[in-house]
Write a protein that binds this DNA or RNA. Structure first.
Lengths: 240, 240
DNA sequence: TACCGCAACTGGTATAGACAACTAAACAAC
DNA sequence: GTTGTTTAGTTGTCTATACCAGTTGCGGTA
């Protein structure tokens, strides 16, 4: 259970123990967890160490304390979908839709001014340009043009892009996606867009531009997406 | 400085001391604060108590620790404009524009189904309906229809609405605005909208609907805004 | 001079113990 | 029955102490 001679701090080991217990459903929301003294005795550690573990979990919103009563598993994420960076696939799935992708173009070009500025690279540096039609329940949802610097992704294939790109970046390449800056503006569907999106030319669309950054501060993607106005609403939850 | 016999916890007193020192500029961002041992000795309290105070401030993002070096005042809000609930006036000012308002209609009506649902009140309950043209640098930026339940705001006048409504709610009424849920979708300017916004009919506009909640969970406003697509971009910063 | 190592600092982890504040339930008194 | 009171449990606060781990600078040695 807990290894006192491990270099991993005891409070952290206990933290993980409790966290996995919650995640595995051994402890369910609203349930009372063992008291601090019980945990201290059970694992033969100090109560203050138990408190440190529980404190962290409380700060992370996983547990809630009530003086005189005990510590409880917190209700699941009331305020979760606040504003987290999600991929198209993740976004669609959270809306109960099945995501899909049709790659239209896949090429290496040299960056124009706009792209080099967004990606913070030299102009005319080689970048991938991938255009895709994004589907939700097999129906077009968005038309998207993705720009990736070749310097960060030396070898990318269509197959890589077809599956979950964010997962590829995080799991395969081990990079840490940190944040993104995104702008939204309304527009009218152009010829090409209306064709790909299966709507009339001039229909209202949502033009989304996103630049995403790794934890080292480098931009790794610049995406321009055109969403169908009749199918897509952008939803945000904000705190004061 | 610190009153050990006060019912206010010592760690909290120290926390406030440090916080006000930062806010008053006695401690500036990047500056090294006294070590935990120094603070403990200075105020004749335990180092663990000092740590509890500092821990809280670190969690609040006011301080940062560096093992072996010391504890420093954090750089100001690098990630602040992440997704905070702001009023139109605050939004415009942050963009360097001068906000303005022209009230078009101000009336009490009975809630329709949509409004009663958003505001979580009974249908046909009395609500204010205020329509405004929002200006930025004296030029129309958005046309907005605001719905407020009369039960929460028994006496509101045009004057109240003209000045900063959020400030009125927070300062005058002492209510706490907590969060809002907002949707964005593209649309085409209708007759009325195009007239108010001084754009052509059929121009792309951004349709924003927002329901805002107090800290007790009650919705206190439902706003439907139509932003000019040629003047307004919605910007969000997202974390993974 | 250049380098190494030690000493003295920093925060990080962990202990054992004490008392306060609060809650719930059992119990006693009215 | 209702109202206090006690009691045993909970988390909250606080102390004193110890050692670990990372950083920095100083001084001695090569």
């Amino acid at each position: 259970m807990i290894n006192k001679s491990s270099p991993i701090p005891i409070y952290f080991q206990l933290e993980e123990l409790l966290r996995t217990a919650v995640e595995n459903g051994e402890l369910i929301p609203g349930q009372l967890i063992p008291s601090e003294r019980e945990l201290a005795e059970k694992y033969d550690i100090s109560r203050m160490t138990v408190r440190q573990a529980i404190n962290n979990l409380v700060n992370q919103g996983l547990l809630v304390r009530e003086q005189g009563k005990g510590t409880f598993v917190a209700d699941k994420k009331i305020e979760q979908p606040l504003m987290t960076l999600t991929s198209f696939s993740e976004d669609m799935r959270s809306r109960g839709l099945v995501p899909g992708t049709e790659i239209r173009e896949f090429e290496v070009i040299s960056a124009s001014m706009r792209e080099s500025m967004e990606l913070q690279i030299e102009e005319s540096e080689p970048i991938y340009r991938v255009s895709r039609v994004r589907l939700a329940d097999a129906e077009p949802m968005a038309y998207e043009i993705l720009f990736l610097p070749k310097s960060i992704f030396p070898e990318i294939t269509e197959a890589t892009i077809s599956s979950s790109f964010y997962k590829y970046v995080e799991k395969e390449l081990g990079m840490k996606i940190e944040r993104a800056r995104q702008t939204l503006e309304p527009a009218l569907a152009t010829d090409i867009e209306s064709e790909f999106l299966n709507v009339k030319k001039g229909s209202p669309v949502l033009l989304m531009r996103r630049t995403s950054y790794l934890s080292n501060g480098r931009p790794f993607e610049y995406v321009k997406s055109v969403y169908r106005g009749d199918r897509y609403k952008f939803i945000t939850e904000m705190k004061r």
